[in-house]
Amino acid sequence: MDRFLFLTFDGLSTGAVYAAFALALVLIWRAARLVNFAQGAMAVATAYVGYAVVSATGSYWLGLGAAVLAGLALGALVERVLMRFVGHANPLNDVIVALGLVLLIQAVLGIVFGNEYRPAAAPFDTDALSLGGIAAMSPYDLWVLGAVLAVVVLLGLLFTRTPIGLRMRSSAFAPEVSRLLGVNVGRMLTVGWALAAAVGALAGMLVVPTGLGLHPHAMDLVFVVAFTAAVVGGLDSPAGAVVGGLLVGLILSYVTGYLGPDTTPLAILVLLLAVLLVRPGGLFSSVRARHV
């Protein structure tokens, strides 16, 4: 029972990171109808920026802010100078260009920072606190959960309560009608990419201290898991991304805990396959009538 509780808490905190990362994928999917396969590499690049600022200033919070700002800038840049010019008629075009971007980013990071693991310190204690004799969550886990929850709430408010959120939603659903109503749809797409990359940057900063450290490939496996989480929840649903992230985090935690870490990558693929076979639209997909 103790072990089960421990694995549950562990699964929730890693799941929160997957949730944030899946959310970043969903943001771009909703805005541009493409899966950003470069999300992981972009997040690593911004994490390098973040930890460079941390080691220069000694402040984790300045580094976190720098990473998020770098995410905003990188997302906008990728959309403006690259993705805008890709023909979206064939979805494969987006995938190939994004994979090319992954190679480019990882090569540049390797040249600039080297291909070895660099230590990345956590701002809080990562040792689990005991709750009545049971190892529960570490202060760092609580920070991760809190930060992801805050991002989810803030994004929800942004999309439902602000004029720019309304513009972004309408641009995604009906670009032509939105233009006729005075919405600059191209700009909304840039904003969507910037937001998604900023969320990805935050997820990167949160996940790096829990692994081996900073490395150009540090997010490769995280990306695969987060992609699975987004598919589990349904690529169209922000709520689905969060639930999917937590669910995948829990499942992987149980599998790793009870069956051993060797089975983890297999479990991800089995889960992805099962969802695609049984409910390809994801758990939160809704079938709706569109158009008149």
Partner: peptide, 11 residues
């Protein structure tokens, strides 16, 4: 006001 699909059905 374009034909048929002048509204954003999801909003």
């Amino acid at each position: 006001v374009p034909e048929g699909r002048g509204i954003v059905a999801e909003l």
